[in-house]
């Protein structure tokens, strides 16, 4: 059964409402930044994207622990979808970060900004998740190895941030920090609403992906059963090679 579509509708509506509210507030309520002006508003997109995608990677690692402990494919599916979505979000995060860097410091890429640099390394790390999965044919081994990789990757995220931070002797004066501590109250409120909106978007898309994957697996199973009735010799036809988990059963 499609266990993942259960809360999907409610989640999708909540996401749409929150994102709309966040965008409205960003453009019509949040004050213009004194130094950076209008372009600073990308902050409400960039920082939530970055936070949510990093959490997505670490979450992928935690789900992977669940897979190795229980051996249940549903955890592999969760891990796969979390990392997949986090990767997509992180591309958005790095592009918006680059735009922001260009607007505020005049360069598309700033090595002095340790968060941005660490972020790039984390993306490079998890970008190999898909190729790794794709090059292992046996689905069970694929899941197991992907889980090992996700755990190792997740654990190295903090080490990355420490190393890059240590290597930057001169840190840019930071107008805004990730925690939003230096923000005026109105900006802080809008930021948190944006963060919730992006997090909800992540959850919705992840659930959608899981539901789609399961539906596809179910369809394939039914089709095979149908073939088996018509043509008993064709039951074990090998399926197409894939990097995605083959159903959560």
């Amino acid at each position: 059964m499609m266990t993942h579509s259960r809360h999907l509708r409610g989640l999708a509506i909540a996401t749409a409402v929150t994102i709309t509210a966040a965008l409205t507030l960003v453009f019509f309520y949040a004050p213009l930044d004194a130094d950076q002006g209008f372009v600073q508003k990308i902050f409400y997109l960039h920082v939530p994207l970055a936070i949510v995608s990093l959490c997505g990677f670490v979450l992928g690692g935690i789900f992977a622990i669940g897979y190795l402990r229980t051996g249940r494919r549903i955890w592999d599916m969760r891990s796969y979808c979390a990392i997949h979505m986090a990767l997509i979000f992180s591309v958005g995060g790095i592009v918006t970060g680059s735009i922001w860097a260009k607007a505020s410091w005049g360069h598309w890429w700033v090595w002095q900004e340790p968060t941005l640099v660490s972020y790039l390394i984390v993306i490079l790390m998890f970008a190999t998740y898909q190729p790794l999965r794709f090059s292992i044919e046996d689905p069970e081994r694929q899941s197991r190895y992907a889980a090992v990789f996700a755990i190792v990757g997740g654990a190295f995220v903090p080490l990355n941030f420490i190393a890059v931070r240590l290597s930057v002797e001169f840190v840019h004066p930071r107008v805004l920090n990730l925690e939003g501590g230096a923000l005026p109250g109105s900006m802080k409120l809008v930021f948190y609403i944006s963060l919730v909106g992006i997090a909800l978007l992540f959850a919705t898309l992840m659930k959608y992906e899981m539901a789609a994957k399961e539906t596809r697996a179910e369809t394939r199973r039914l089709r095979r059963a149908l073939h088996a009735c018509e043509d008993p010799g064709a039951t074990d036809r090998p399926s197409r090679r894939t990097a995605a988990p083959v159903g959560a059963h």
Partner: peptide, 10 residues
Amino acid sequence: LPLLIPALIA
């Protein structure tokens, strides 16, 4: 390589 980057930096 990406996993080793922190160690290589250090």
